[in-house]
């Protein structure tokens, strides 16, 4: 589904990603973790072309992301993305947030889009909020709406960029629950997150990054029980003791 081969990226002389290679198969849930500044978010943003990269290759569903001839908008419409800061469109009601791209990008009718939107709001438990505006919802609610908005496009896979990092602790679980459910239904997912509990529950594989390199890429059992690199062991020791 997603295949990366020796992806490298630099800003000027600063190397952000170095030779990142990995595969994500259909139905897999990949958790990407690592210290801040290790390039996790950059890596995930390369997958749908939000961040350009200088060398290497990323193929999503048979389409090369880095190829200048690729219609990136079309590719992105098939890849759902959820951001750290939700990024709902504040001037639109919740239901319009879910409908706008369905209508303008996929060409669905207003009725089709609204029906789909309401169904998905139901699924994330927010049907009653459909006519409200993003600023009137809590962070956890906004992030659930953001997930529903991405799902409304019927994506073939979902990218999550630290979806719970900006949330109050008590709202983290409501978002993780939605993500867990999604994973159990077989959605292909790539999640940058520090939620190791989530990783233990649903991840197929864990990728650990440090200084722009993929240091570990292993099953979750292998990663949590006996991480090979010292850097990953230190990282785990730090975050698991809390």
């Amino acid at each position: 589904m997603i295949s990366m081969n020796k992806v490298s990226k630099h800003y000027g002389s600063f190397q952000v990603l170095t030779d990142c290679t990995t595969q994500v198969h259909k139905g897999e849930v990949i958790v990407v973790c690592g210290p801040s500044g290790s390039g996790k978010s950059t890596l995930i943003k390369c997958v749908n072309g939000l961040e350009p990269f200088q060398s290497g290759e990323i193929i999503v569903n048979g389409v090369s992301v880095g190829d200048p001839k690729t219609n990136l908008s079309k590719l992105r419409s098939t890849v759902g993305m959820v951001f750290q800061n939700f990024e709902l469109f504040p001037h639109m009601s919740i239901i319009d947030n879910l409908c706008i791209a369905q209508i303008k990008v996929l060409g669905r009718s207003q009725e089709q889009a609204r029906e789909k939107g309401h169904k998905l709001l139901d699924r994330v438990g927010l049907r009653a909020q459909a006519e409200k505006y993003p600023g009137q919802l809590s962070g956890g609610q906004q992030q659930r709406v953001a997930i529903a908005r991405a799902l409304a496009m019927d994506p073939i896979c979902m990218l999550f960029d630290e979806p719970t990092s900006a949330l109050d602790p008590e709202m983290v679980n409501e978002v993780l629950d939605v993500m867990t459910e999604l994973a159990q239904e077989g959605m292909t997912m790539m999640c940058v997150t520090h939620e190791m509990g989530f990783a233990r529950r649903v991840a197929s594989r864990v990728i650990f990054m440090d200084q722009g390199r993929i240091v570990e890429d292993d099953s979750k059992e292998a990663f949590f029980e006996h991480a090979r690199s010292e850097r990953a062991q230190q990282f785990l020791a730090k975050i698991l003791h809390h």
Binding site: S73, R76, T78, E87
Partner: peptide, 17 residues
Amino acid sequence: PPGQKNAGLAMGFTLPQ
């Protein structure tokens, strides 16, 4: 917020959209 542009693009909007 810079993420707004990314959010629009990630939905499949073109830059003008």
